[in-house]
Measured scan of single mutants.
Amino acid sequence: HMTFVALYDYVASGETDLSFKKGERLQIVNNTEGDWALAHSLTTGRTGYIPSNYVAPSD
């Protein structure tokens, strides 16, 4: 899985969403939902949907 870094803070709007903080590292599990991606946080160990425009690929 590619690793991504959060560009902004995001507060989950539902139970299936994943909250994260700017700078948090995430792995995209499934990116077939258009503007949303299923992601796993390497920081918190949690998995949920995130807005895909809130993250960018990290080196």
Rank of each mutant, 00 (worst) to 15 (best):
T16S: 13
T3R: 04
N30M: 14
Y54E: 02
N30V: 12
D17L: 10
R46Q: 11
T3D: 07
I50C: 02
V55N: 05
T16M: 14
E33S: 13
Y8C: 10
R25V: 15
N31Y: 15
S58H: 12
S58C: 13
L38H: 04
Y10H: 06
G45M: 04
L38F: 11
Q27C: 14
H40E: 07
G34K: 08
S41L: 02
P51L: 05
V5R: 03
T43K: 08
A37H: 10
K22W: 03
M2W: 10
R25F: 15
F4C: 08
T47I: 09
H40S: 07
T47A: 06
Q27M: 13
D9G: 04
R46D: 06
S41C: 03
V11N: 10
Y8S: 07
S58G: 10
E15A: 11
A12T: 04
I50V: 11
S13L: 11
K21D: 05
V5N: 03
H40A: 06
Y54G: 06
T3F: 12
F4V: 14
F20C: 05
S52P: 10
G14E: 08
T3S: 08
V29N: 07
M2L: 11
Y8H: 09
V55R: 04
V29R: 07
A39C: 04
I50R: 00
Y54N: 03
E33G: 14
T44A: 02
L26M: 07
D17T: 09
S41Y: 00
K22P: 04
G34Y: 06
M2E: 09
I28M: 08
I28C: 06
T43P: 02
I28Y: 05
V55P: 04
A56Y: 11
K21Q: 11
S13H: 11
A12E: 04
H40V: 15
L18H: 02
Q27H: 12
D9R: 01
D9N: 06
H1V: 13
T47P: 01
R46S: 07
S13M: 13
S19F: 05
S58L: 15
F20L: 06
R46E: 09
L26V: 04
H40G: 02
I50G: 00
V55A: 07
N30F: 14
E15S: 11
K22I: 06
P51H: 05
A12W: 02
G45D: 05
T3A: 07
T44E: 03
W36Y: 08
F20N: 00
H1M: 13
H1N: 11
A12D: 02
T47G: 05
L7D: 04
S19Q: 05
N31D: 11
S52F: 15
A56F: 11
K21F: 08
I28E: 01
V11C: 09
L7C: 08
T32G: 12
S19Y: 04
S13G: 09
D35T: 11
N30P: 07
V11A: 08
H40I: 15
P51C: 05
A39G: 04
A37E: 04
G48Q: 02
G48P: 02
N53H: 13
V55I: 13
N31T: 13
L42H: 05
T43S: 10
P57G: 08
G34S: 09
Y49V: 07
H1R: 06
G48H: 03
T44Y: 02
S13D: 08
T43D: 15
E33L: 14
A39E: 01
G48I: 01
P51I: 02
G23R: 00
A56W: 10
A56L: 10
V11S: 08
W36T: 06
L18G: 02
E33T: 13
M2V: 11
N53A: 12
A37V: 15
V5A: 03
G14Y: 08
L26E: 00
L38A: 02
T16K: 13
S41M: 02
Q27F: 13
W36D: 01
S13F: 10
E24M: 02
D59C: 14
D17S: 09
L18E: 03
L38M: 09
H1S: 12
R25S: 10
D35F: 12
Y10W: 07
E33I: 12
V29T: 07
D35G: 15
Y49N: 04
T43A: 09
L7G: 04
N31C: 14
P51W: 04
A37L: 15
K22H: 04
D9Q: 04
V5P: 01
A56M: 11
P51N: 05
E15H: 11
E15N: 10
A37C: 15
Q27W: 14
V5C: 06
G34E: 07
V29C: 14
N30L: 13
K22L: 04
T44F: 01
V55F: 11
D59M: 12
I28T: 03
L42R: 02
D59A: 11
I28L: 10
V11T: 12
K21P: 01
K21A: 09
H1Y: 13
L18D: 01
D9L: 06
S13Q: 14
W36S: 03
T32C: 13
L42S: 04
Y54A: 14
K22G: 03
G23Q: 01
T43Y: 06
F20A: 02
H1K: 09
N30A: 14
L38Q: 03
N31G: 14
N53D: 09
T3E: 12
A6E: 01
L38S: 01
D35I: 12
N53I: 10
D35K: 12
F20M: 08
M2H: 13
T16A: 11
I50T: 00
A56R: 11
T32A: 12
D35A: 13
D59P: 13
G14K: 15
A37R: 09
E24T: 01
L42T: 06
Q27Y: 14
S19H: 04
F20D: 00
G45S: 03
A12L: 03
A56N: 08
V11I: 12
I50A: 02
Y49W: 15
Q27N: 07
I50E: 01
Y8F: 12
Y10E: 00
Y10F: 07
V29D: 06
T47Q: 07
N53V: 09
Q27I: 15
D59H: 12
I28P: 01
S41N: 12
G45I: 01
V5T: 09
T43N: 09
P57E: 09
R25W: 14
E15G: 08
H40C: 13
K21Y: 07
L7T: 06
W36G: 03
L38E: 04
N53Q: 10
V55L: 11
A56I: 14
D17Q: 15
N31Q: 13
D9P: 04
G34H: 08
G14R: 14
T16R: 14
F20S: 00
T16I: 08
F4N: 02
K21I: 08
L42V: 07
S41Q: 04
T16Q: 13
H40Y: 14
T44V: 01
P57R: 09
E15D: 13
F4W: 14
K21L: 09
Q27K: 10
Y8P: 00
R25Q: 12
A12V: 04
V5Y: 08
K22N: 02
R25P: 08
E33C: 14
E15L: 11
A56P: 12
F20W: 02
A39S: 01
A56S: 10
E24L: 00
L26A: 00
G45P: 00
T3K: 04
S58Y: 15
L42Q: 07
G48T: 01
K21G: 06
L18Y: 04
N31R: 12
V29P: 06
N31H: 13
Y49D: 01
M2S: 09
A37W: 15
D9Y: 01
T47D: 06
Y10D: 00
P51Q: 04
N53E: 09
K21R: 10
F4R: 03
G23P: 00
A39R: 00
E24K: 00
A12F: 03
S52Q: 09
Q27A: 08
E33Q: 13
G48R: 00
W36V: 06
Y49H: 06
Y8T: 07
I28R: 01
R46G: 08
Y49K: 06
D35R: 10
I50Q: 00
D9W: 03
N30Y: 14
Y54P: 03
G34C: 08
V55Q: 04
N30S: 14
Y10S: 01
Y8G: 04
T43E: 14
Y54I: 08
A12G: 13
L18F: 09
F4Y: 14
L26W: 02
G23W: 04
N31M: 15
R46A: 09
G14H: 11
S52G: 07
D17C: 13
H1T: 12
